[in-house]
Design a protein around this nucleic acid. Structure first.
Length: 824
RNA sequence: GCGAGAGUGGCGGAACUGGCAGACGCACUGGACUUAGGAUCCAGCACCGAAAGGUGUAGGGGUUCAAAUCCCCUCUCUCGCACCA
């Protein structure tokens, strides 16, 4: 063994060893308990960043720990490889997205290997490989057959210059993030997944995921947004037909004095009287030019326009003017809102602006609202007034009564509404999974027949950055024969949202080379669910909700037998430096390569685990890294120095140990217990590492190291340090383990087990308080009675001085810990 | 505004069901070894105080023999949602 710790030598040696002996390859072994550990796979953007280092270090500790404990650990890695940056890079560099992506993958794979992460690389997958996305097309078609994938028109952010849909986050200040053109709302036919069919179950299971952080579950519940209310029909005035609204406040129905429709509402134009047509059209046009972000911002001024038509309040028979209002969303509820200005703040502001009537129907206790003096809407519970038969009731009770009444009268029904909308998956992009359908003038939407699957992305494409989807311009791709009638037809040229790929990759990891379908069910049933999923909080809603949805769909298609994909979820915090998230623009980026070159992967891993608990943000500190490096050197030196004494030591004979040896041994076993608890139950890596540091300090302080009678205890201590550290710093641990004389690696050694008997204290330090203040400490035998502790306490001079001349009222004894003497 | 979480030395952070506040590490100070120290080792390190002692976990109040921990009020910060009818 080298005298001096040279990370590079150690790390290269063991990485090579792991690679050639395929140390982390796993198969389904029904004789062992399985453990599926997964970290969110990265987008191959070019190089890994510190967030990856942290995420994957956390995961690797758990993987190695579980392996040492005897679990059959599935720990895979792959690439979320479709997406826009590849296409943008292709436009810039005049290359191909596939080239760019595969080069990045090769480089980043090298980086991950340099970190010594214990993946089963044989299961590696990239979602842009046809071996992966082909199966996704199959799943899509099965969803299509069941009506879970369907087409509908919807409004989207559209850049007229790039001719493509933009996600909300790609719209900056109302303009396209790339070309700055003004973004418009465009009505487009798009493919959707019917996630709303699963809204109830997705919500329901947020109460059945105890291993998830509460805040993630709350976010998902909010996103799903279940509400209870009524749909109520308002007949048109002087016309047949009616407007249906959704409301959760049917208790305010008697106060509804006008009607607000979304500008895109299908009835908007037919309700507009001829003389108001020009004004209404101008308004609708203006709203459509506003992007969705600004449209739904709260500070947007409430604006509207009168259509010229009226409807009738079904309970008061009042004539209600029908307006279009910019804050009413077509996608939510029915796209129409009964406006109750007295009891809804938005309606209040709107009514004030357009001088619409106010009618109070709920009075707060001990107060009488007057519409002419109100300055804001009253939205709380109160007593019903001006509400016919419901007058005098509490408004929250009236809610139910009115719902029943409406049902009886046939003008409304109780309903449940969700905020969650179906998942639009169409992207007018090249670098994604082609949606496998064909459009035929005679036959309509025709799924690509099984024998023609997969629809492979053509490679000969020009990337100009102008003019919409590149796929649409490739005639050999877009022009096809209809599979049904043989007539010329057109292929779908939209591709799927990249979130689709990440919604089931964890299932494909169970059987990455399977050619009989997307998922090899017996194998998936062995591995699923993922026991521990680890990733950033930024995916709290979208990815994690989509993955849950997909798992349920795949369950219903018969591929898997689990209801939920991830049993336990750990959301790790961000990596911060100088008070801000690392970013190029802030110039506070730490490059993992530089870190590994200088200190080695073990130090990089150790620091990112030691500096903060995983779910909190981690403040990067260069000096802190030095400290971790120093610690590894200290451990290395400890082994070098003690090796001659422990090399030939046998097992510990507890009966023959001297006091200090017995004390050291107690600490060794307590540390094993502490580290095991921290890793097993709490993922408190920082305190686990701190405990090992304390043990290392204690072994350094232990003397004499060269006494033969101490050799066994010393050896047990040093070996424990090495094994306990091995999940954190695997390279150096393997090297030291080998140096101590073990032929087999640390995994074969197994996770150390503490001897409960060895952890039992012989003496206890009892804290003595007088009136709750610390006044002394006494050491007593571990089996000391309360009486004995009291004797010792009263014998203590310092304690005595605090008791002098005082009346002792009582003494509270907490066994083995503390004695509080109350005097007065 | 609503919801969730957090607030502890100069810094990152410990303190499991209320029981020694500040583990461990960083920084800092002093010392040793040294041609040298950005290596290593030893010691110190919440604040006030010479000491005895006192005061301290955002602030205020409460429960308790005992509160960082439980309860109430206030403040600050972070995150999420945010015209959702």
């Amino acid at each position: 063994m080298e005298e001096k710790y040279v990370p590079k030598n150690v790390e290269e040696k063991w990485q090579k060893h792991w690679e050639t002996s395929k140390s982390f390859k796993v198969t389904e072994d029904r004789g062992k308990q399985k453990y599926y550990l997964l970290e969110m796979f990265p987008y191959p953007s070019g190089r890994i960043h510190m967030g990856h280092v942290r995420n994957y270090s956390i995961g690797d500790v758990v993987a190695r720990f579980k392996r040492m404990k005897g679990f059959n650990v599935l720990h895979p890695m792959g690439w979320d490889a479709f997406g826009m940056p590849a296409e943008n890079a292709a436009i810039q560099n005049r290359s191909h997205p596939a080239t760019w992506t595969h080069e990045n993958i090769a480089y980043m794979r090298g980086q991950l290997k340099k970190m010594g992460l214990s993946y089963d690389w044989d299961r590696e997958l990239a979602t842009c490989d046809v071996e992966y996305y082909a199966w996704e097309q199959r799943i899509f078609l099965q969803m299509f057959e069941r009506g879970l994938a369907y087409k509908k028109t919807s409004y989207v952010n559209w850049c007229p210059k790039c001719e493509t849909v933009l996600a909300n986050e790609q719209v900056e200040d109302g303009g396209c993030w790339r070309c700055d053109s003004s973004v418009v709302q465009k009505e487009l036919e798009q493919w959707f997944f019917r996630i709303t069919d699963y809204a109830e179950e997705l919500l329901d299971y947020t109460n059945k995921l105890p291993g998830w952080p509460e805040r993630v579950l709350v976010m998902q519940r909010n996103w799903i947004g279940k509400s209870y209310g009524c749909e109520i029909d308002f007949p048109l005035d002087g016309n047949t037909g009616k407007i249906r609204v959704y409301t959760t406040r049917q208790d305010t129905l008697y106060g509804a004095t006008f009607m607000s429709l979304a500008p895109e509402h299908p009835m908007a134009l037919e309700l507009t009287t001829p003389e108001r047509r020009a004004e209404v059209a101008a308004f609708v046009d203006k709203v459509k030019k506003t992007d969705k972000i600004r449209r739904t911002a709260e500070d947007l001024e409430k604006e509207g326009v009168f259509t010229g038509s009226y409807c009738i309040n079904p309970v008061t028979n009042a004539k209600m003017p029908i307006y279009l209002a910019n804050f009413v969303l077509l996608e939510y509820g029915t796209g129409a809102v009964m406006a109750v200005p007295t009891h809804d703040q938005r309606d209040f502001e709107f009514a004030k602006k357009y001088d619409l009537p106010l009618q109070v129907v709920i009075q707060p206790e001990g107060e009488a609202l007057d519409p002419s003096t109100m300055t804001s809407a009253y939205i709380e519970v109160g007593t019903m007034v001006n509400s016919g038969p419901f007058d005098g009731m509490r408004s929250d009770e009236a809610k139910e009564k009115i719902a029943e009444y409406l049902d009886r009268e046939g003008v409304g029904t109780k309903t449940v509404n969700f905020r969650l909308r179906d998942w639009g998956i169409s992207r007018q992009r090249y670098w994604g999974n082609p949606i496998p359908v064909i459009y035929c003038d005679s036959c309509g939407v025709v799924p690509v027949p099984e024998k023609d699957l997969p629809v492979v992305l053509p490679m000969d494409v020009a990337f100009t950055g102008e003019g919409g989807s590149p796929l649409a311009k490739i005639d050999s791709f877009a022009n096809v024969e209809c599979p049904l009638c043989g007539k010329p037809a057109r292929r779908e040229t939209d591709t799927m949202d990249t979130f689709v790929q990440s919604s089931w990759y964890f299932l494909r990891y169970c059987c990455p080379e399977f050619t009989g379908g997307p998922i090899d069910t017996p194998r998936a049933e062995y591995w699923m669910s993922v026991d521990q999923y680890i990733g950033g909080i930024e995916h709290a809603v979208l990815h994690l909700l989509y993955a849950r949805f997909f798992t349920k769909v795949l369950r219903d298609l018969g591929y898997v037998n689990v209801d939920e994909p991830f049993t336990n979820l750990l959301t790790q915090g961000m990596v911060i430096k100088d008070g801000a998230k690392m970013s190029k623009s802030k110039g506070n980026v730490v490059d993992p390569n530089a870190l590994i070159d200088r200190y080695g992967a073990d130090t990089a891993r150790l620091f990112s685990l030691f500096a903060a608990p995983p779910e909190k943000d981690l403040d990067w500190s260069d000096q802190g890294v030095d400290g971790s490096y120093r610690f590894i050197n200290r451990v290395w030196k400890l082994v070098v120095e003690t090796l001659p004494f422990i090399e030939h030591a046998g097992p510990v004979d507890a009966a023959t140990l001297a006091d200090n040896a017995r004390n050291l041994r107690r600490m060794v076993h307590k540390t094993i217990r502490k580290v095991t608890d921290d890793l097993d139950e709490r993922f408190h890596f920082n305190t686990a590492i701190a405990a090992v540091m304390e043990l290392v300090n204690a072994i350094y302080a232990f003397e004499p190291k060269n006494a033969p009678e101490n050799a066994a205890v010393l050896r047990e201590g040093v070996e424990s340090v090495v094994l306990l550290l091995s999940p954190f710093v695997p390279h150096v641990a393997e090297e030291l383990w080998e140096a101590i004389g073990h032929q087999e690696g640390v995994e074969a050694a197994g996770w150390p087990v503490w001897d409960e008997a060895a952890t039992v204290d012989e003496e206890l330090l009892i804290v003595i308080q007088v009136n709750g203040k610390l006044r002394g400490k006494v050491t007593v035998p571990a089996d000391a009675t309360e009486e004995l502790v009291k004797q010792a306490a009263f014998a203590d001079e310092r304690v005595q001085s605090w008791l002098e001349g005082k009346q002792i009222r009582k003494a509270i004894y907490v066994p083995g810990k503390l004695l509080n003497i109350v005097v007065g």
